[in-house]
């Protein structure tokens, strides 16, 4: 109850006094950590639209969900249903309770009151957020862009700011790619799952801790994001024709076979030099023959 009162007080405070200090922090934090997957009133991206979430859920609920959606989902039926709806739990966010509260304040400040929300009409129309620049829509990508995206993914072409290539941690089933890393999710169908806007969000400010750490100091450029998205789009569409180049067992076979052959050749040459039999072998053989013919 106390929390609710507090929440109302803060919300109204924010409404009345505009963007406070907390709210300003909240905005920065939201853009940095949430905006990749969520909007406030902008419709569903990768995750749900967070408009009005401050009313829908208690603050504790939100804090727990943000800390570890997977763990919380095991305990809470609502959370579980939410995860089931979006297919996978939200990545754990390394945010303090204060940070989460700041973000909730920001969301609350940007959420219209209930009356306005109901008057606002169907948000379903806005479900797919289009990228601002139509030239950067992966649907408009040329074959070169797709090919370049593939090279960026595989690391054949370095990323402009020196970030690690995607293949290190991710896998995409594609004829021209070897099996990628297993650290992070398989990205074969990522375009279907997240869409252009989702990819754009994640790639421009990665919300996943490991990915965030990797690209914090060397972010992807807008062009690269577009090319990668084009590649992902192509990979997910043409997935049925793209067989992964399966090196798995063959690599072992080639490597092991090569090592075996090398060792065998070395042993063979050493063996060539060896004194291979006892100098008395023919004498012994004759003795044995004579003994057995008796």
């Amino acid at each position: 109850m106390k929390i609710k009162l507090k929440l109302i007080a803060v919300t109204t405070g924010a409404l009345f006094y505009g963007l406070g200090v907390n709210a300003q922090d909240g905005e920065a934090l939201f853009k940095q950590t949430c905006a990749a997957c969520h909007t406030v009133g902008g419709g569903k991206l990768v995750g749900p639209d967070l408009q009005g979430v401050n009313k829908k859920r208690t603050e504790d609920w939100i804090v727990n969900f943000v800390k570890s959606a997977a763990d919380f989902g095991a305990k809470d039926a609502d959370a579980k249903a939410m995860i089931a709806e979006y297919g996978y739990p939200m990545p754990n966010q390394n945010l303090g309770e204060g940070d989460v509260k700041a973000i909730i304040n920001y969301i609350a400040a940007n959420s219209p009151t209930e009356e306005i929300a109901t008057e606002g009409g169907a948000p379903a129309e806005e479900i797919v957020a289009e990228p601002a620049d139509p030239a950067l829509d992966p649907a408009n990508a040329s074959a070169e862009d797709i090919a370049f995206g593939l090279k960026l993914f595989s690391g054949e072409n370095r990323l402009a700011n020196g970030g690690p290539s995607c293949l290190t941690c991710h896998n995409v089933e594609h004829t021209d790619l070897i099996a990628g890393g297993l650290l992070a999710k398989d990205l074969t169908k990522v375009y279907e799952r997240m869409g252009a806007a989702g990819l754009n969000g994640i790639l421009s400010s990665p919300p996943f801790p490991a990915m965030n750490a990797s690209y914090k100091d060397n972010p992807l450029t807008e062009k690269e994001i577009f090319q990668l998205s084009a590649f992902f789009s192509d990979a997910s569409v043409n997935n049925i024709y793209q067989k992964q180049r399966a090196y798995n067992d063959n690599l072992l076979l080639y490597g092991g076979g090569g090592a075996f052959a090398t060792i065998a050749i070395v042993i063979f040459f050493l063996f060539l030099e060896r004194k291979r039999k006892c100098v008395k072998e023919d004498i012994y053989k004759r003795q044995t023959k004579a003994a057995s013919s008796k």
Binding site: L270, E273, R274, K275, C278, V279, K280, Y284
Partner: peptide, 15 residues
């Protein structure tokens, strides 16, 4: 160095 693991012309006990 080449024969560091085995001396190739060693007489054996049967020699």
């Amino acid at each position: 160095l080449k024969n560091i693991f085995a001396n190739p012309n060693m007489p054996v006990l049967d020699d």
